[in-house]
Amino acid sequence: MFHKEQIPILISLTAGAIMIFDFFVKQATIANMASQALKWNIIIAAFATALGGANLLRIHSRRISRRTARWHLSVLLVASMVIYAAVGVTQGPQGVNYQFLWQNLFSPLSATMFSLNAFFIASAAVRAFRIRTIQAAILMVCAFAVMIGNTGVGVALWDGFPKSGQWVMNIVNVAGMRGIVIGAALGAMGISLRVILGLERGHLSGVE
């Protein structure tokens, strides 16, 4: 239990205390320790990518060897991963082949996924904007003001459309968002302090 709970808590406490002190006071040793901690974080994050890759390989190799349902998709995944990684490691991201794969395979595929939002926003809006209550009516009027104000047609028809859209964004939206942001920031502060002080244990397994 000690190494699963006490050591992570001790590390969190030390790193957290260093960063908090460094935020408030000017002191060379603490500044140096904070700078080292930040570098370690960057290095650990980079190494973790290999860990993620190993997890993917483990799961999909097992699927391939057991010939589970849709195992051919796992073959595709492992092959793509190995090829992409091999090209990246041998040539670096500035290499011709890596750039080719990135520009002609990865980028269009990502853009395709993102573009699904255009369709999903349309269907979600049509379903969601029903004037069931007075609040829903206000919501719809605001949405109309912003959407029409953002179109060329709105600008061409009447300059009040973009102005009302901006008013909704600058005043109504900001007022509501500030409330949510302040509440969320306090929540984040509370949870961060609990993690640093070892009072938050949701992320620790609690078992051997």
Binding site: I180, V181, I182, G183, A184, L186, G187, A188, M189, G190, I191, L193, R194, L199, E200, G202
Partner: peptide
């Protein structure tokens, strides 16, 4: 927003988590 951060206290009723919620309310 903050409802997400309150989840731990809500689900567990752990004194530490509920105490933290009270501190958040003081902040608010």
């Amino acid at each position: 927003g903050e409802e997400l951060y309150a989840a731990g206290a809500y689900l567990s009723r752990n004194p530490v988590q509920v105490g933290s919620l009270m501190a958040q309310d003081v902040g608010k």
